[in-house]
Structures are given as structure tokens and as C-alpha cells.
Amino acid sequence: MTKTLVVAEMAVREMARRRVVLIILLLLPLAFYLSRRGDQLGQSIRFVCLGLGWALSTAALFAGSAARTIEPRLRLSGYSARHLIAGRLAALWAVGVLLSAPYFLLVRLDQHDVRYGAIAAIMALTVLVSASFGLALSVVLPRELEGTLVLLAVVGLQMMLDPDDTSARVLPFWFSRELATYAVDHTGGGYLDRGLLHGVLAVAVLTALVAVAFRVRQGRRPHLRFEPLR
């Protein structure tokens, strides 16, 4: 437990030191929000949640990539994969909550006649999905540039694809639009159920992907054995 906490603490410290990146990430969802605030109030909620997802996924991607150089040493020092993954995810969740809180407040104060509970659910699931998504990209792809391009593609597709199209459900943030529809347009429970299910599934799949990819990248080392000699 201590090991996981230390990993999480250091991950948060690392992220907190990158001031410029943090400021950009903080303001990105705001830009998304304001872009639709004028005429389509409901759309602005959908956009701000997408913006949050993009910002947090980017933060997760860079946090994961930055840790690469020190990972062999961490492994040698006695950290197992689950410490490293759990610790980083915990740090990203903490940062995600801090990033989302002001935006939830913004929606609470600026928007009326919407289901706030559902919006809170969107943001919570977004934090969880983004953390695992960004981390997965950092583990699977060799450098941040490739990861950023994939993120761009995903967010772009998320905005362009018709959510009713079945292929749109493959995208990790599809739940965001379903739940937003439920919250803004006061539709029936179907949207809520589908949205929640997709969100939970996305978290599970992406987190499993992180675990598997991490183990694969660390590689087995069958030639090395720790045992008493003679």
C-alpha cells in the first residue's frame, strides 16, 4: 500500500511541476465550453466534457511517457507492475477530480434545468476513462507524438461521428454524449442505462489494456533468477 501511495505522490508532484502544461489543460475545456455557449447551451455541456476527456487523456499520456526512463530502476528497486499502474492511476484520478470540479461548478451555476447528477456521472466516468486511456497509449506507443496524434483522431471522430451510428460506440467517450443527452434533453432512462454501461465497460477494457501492455513491455526475463547460490 505504501509503495502505491509513494508512486502516486511522486506522479502528482511531477505533474504539478509542469506549470504551462497544466494551465493549458485547465483552460482547454473552457474554450470548448465557450465555443457553444452562445446559441446551443446543451451542446456546450457535451463539448466541455469532451474537452475534459481530451485534456486528461493528454495529461495521462505525458505522465506515462515521462516515467519511462526511471521505470527499469523502479522495477529493480522492488516495485511490481501493480504498484506502478495503481499508483499512476490514483494520481491521475486525483488530478482529474481537481480539474473537473471547477467545471462542474461552472455548469451548476451557468446552466439551469439540467440533471446535475448525470453531469457529475459524466465527469466522474470521464476522469476514469481518460486516465486509463492516456496511460494505455503511453504504454503501447513508443513516443508522445504518436500518442497525441491518436488522441487527436479519437476526439475528432468523437465530435464528427453520429452517436446513433453503432460504430460510434467503439470510441471511448461515447458514453459522454449519451449521458449528456439524458441530462440536457430530459430523455428517458434508456440513455442513462446505455451511457453508464458504456462508461463502465470502457474503464474496464482500457484498464485491462494498461495492465496487459505494461507486462508485455516490461518483458519476461527467464534468464535471470534470484536465488541463494551454493
Binding site: 511531477e14 511541476r17 515521462a66 526512463t69 530502476r73
Partner: peptide
């Protein structure tokens, strides 16, 4: 070289 985290 390496083995060190830049921002810590």
C-alpha cells in the same frame, strides 16, 4: 545516463 526523472 538516464535512470532519473526530470521533474523530481
Amino acid at each position: 545516463d538516464g535512470g532519473v526523472s526530470d521533474f523530481l
